[in-house]
Amino acid sequence: MRFTIFNTPVIRPICSLIARLALFLSGWKIEGKKPKAPRYIIVAAPHTSNWDFFYGIAISLCTGVQCYWMGKSSLFWGPFGPVMRWLGGIAVDRTKPKSMVNQTVCCFKGNKQLRLVICPEGTRAKGDRWRTGFYHVAKNANIPIVLGYLDFKRKVGGFGPIIKPTDNMEKDLCEIQAFYDGINGKFPERFSPVLSKNCCAQYCDTPAKTALAK
């Protein structure tokens, strides 16, 4: 078993206490229920600041969700490697997206329990649309997608609806986009749309946010 900040004996409860105190002092609250499924992808959005990482770790510690996250290989350089891995990090080569999807699917199929955090925006800067690797992983591995979020305007973060990929990817992504509408990252202007407006036009009449919340 690989030890991380989420399961290291003695250290884990201490870190959890520190995380609770930090969130309390900063005025942050946690919303939503901890997912019960043994395997799932957690979408981390909006991703507009380095602060997202620290609040995400704190929420995971407070809720008891033992998760892993994927980061660019440069974050694991030299002495930072062991620290990042202990924090739950998995280094990935972003130049080979198709290979990464296949490897991630294999990881899910080979583990009875795995919670993986993915930032579909891929960068803190504003982009044209989300990368869809997370969706293909969930679809091919037959696992649900948990919509995690950080709303800096309301100072709340946690777990939103759980969705299961269907045979209509664009419709599913449009519903995800509807859920994140109104959720503000630290720098809202940097938040990348899940899909372009043109792609979502045919589904604009779908009350996605309401449907997902049920």
Rank of each mutant, 00 (worst) to 15 (best):
K34P: 08
I143H: 02
R2S: 03
L21D: 04
M84T: 05
P82D: 04
F159L: 11
S74K: 15
P13I: 06
G78N: 14
G32R: 05
K33Y: 11
D52M: 12
A138L: 04
G64D: 04
A201L: 11
R39Y: 06
Q202I: 09
I143T: 02
P165V: 06
I163F: 00
V146C: 14
K186C: 04
K112P: 07
P207V: 03
L87G: 04
F134A: 08
T132V: 12
G27Q: 06
N111T: 14
K155E: 07
N184G: 07
I11F: 01
R12F: 00
R131H: 15
T95L: 09
F24Y: 11
N198A: 12
R190N: 00
A45V: 10
D205C: 10
G32H: 03
T4Q: 02
L21N: 09
H47F: 06
E170C: 09
V43W: 05
R129S: 15
C174E: 00
R131S: 14
F134H: 12
R94D: 04
I183T: 00
I162R: 08
P165S: 09
F191V: 15
K209T: 02
T95D: 11
K72T: 13
W130C: 06
G127P: 13
K155S: 07
I14N: 00
I42E: 11
F53Q: 12
I90G: 02
L61P: 01
A211S: 14
P9K: 02
V92P: 00
L21F: 10
I183K: 01
Q103L: 10
I176A: 02
A45H: 12
G148H: 13
P207R: 04
K209F: 02
R190H: 03
V65E: 06
I162Y: 12
K96W: 01
R20H: 12
L21G: 06
F80K: 07
E175D: 12
F80N: 10
I90S: 02
I14T: 04
L87M: 15
S192H: 05
G81Y: 04
G88P: 01
G185Q: 02
G122A: 11
Q202F: 07
T210L: 15
I176Q: 01
F3Q: 01
L23M: 13
S16D: 07
F191G: 08
C107K: 09
A19F: 02
P161G: 09
D52K: 10
S192W: 02
A138I: 03
T95H: 13
N142D: 14
G81C: 14
I42R: 11
P120C: 06
L195H: 00
K214D: 11
F6C: 00
G160A: 10
L75M: 12
T8N: 01
A178H: 10
V92I: 07
K29E: 08
F76D: 09
R115K: 14
K36T: 12
C62M: 08
Y135E: 06
Y203N: 06
I41K: 01
R154S: 13
F6T: 00
Y68C: 11
F134D: 05
D205Y: 09
G127A: 15
G56C: 10
S16I: 05
K153P: 07
R85D: 00
S16M: 13
T4H: 03
